[in-house]
Amino acid sequence: MILDVTAIDTYYGETQALFGVSLSVDAGEVVALLGPNGAGKTTTLRSILGLTRPRRGAIRFDGADVSRKPTHDIARMGVGWVPDDRRICPTLTVARNLSIALKRTRFRPWSMKEVFGIFSPLEYLVEREAENLSGGEMQMVAIARALLGSPGLVLFDEPSQGLAPKIVQDVLAIIRRLKDEGLSVIIVEQNAETALSVADRVYVLDRGTVAWSGLAAALRDDAGKRRDLLGA
């Protein structure tokens, strides 16, 4: 097991956002977090990254307790993040956005060359200022940046948001490729269909608690259950 989250309570100021959320991810597994807006999906990712630290509960990554570690240490242990709003620095070129992300962990390292092999358009955009990129190109940079940090676990927050269907398919292909390489993935999605097409297991969150968890196939094949849990 690469990630083990046990009964975390996370707050924004005095407002509690997560109520005893537990989940786990195995090596080479793709886990989807589904649920409506405000269910606590992004907060769960922020808790894992140490950006919004849980007040109670424990988070273990790669065998070590990370619930009290600073974010940069967690990142250096091999947790990569692809945020929903991409968060690329607009005043830097693509090359410089990628170069600040390069780091080594105990996991498989990725070279610029390999990353350009996956995202071939990026090679021609390296000298472009990031503010002049399209939404799809931004997403490529965001994923490339996460890979260059040699992650063992990549957190995708709403990767399909605002992207054309063709590009969403590309993103899903990359997630499958990461899985084949033995990396673990958590994918947060509002769009259940997208997430279910790549996920092995699913956690459905509702108002800060885990409402259901199980195999993705169970939800994929059971439209009734899907409607009950996700309203869609």
């Binding site: 940069h72 990142a75 968060r87 600040i100």
Partner: peptide, 24 residues
Amino acid sequence: TPYGALIKAGAHDSEMVRALGVNL
């Protein structure tokens, strides 16, 4: 320089540079 890139990125979005492994 890479330090310059870090400073500019840090000025734009301090949370993101932390998540990239930078000791803010």
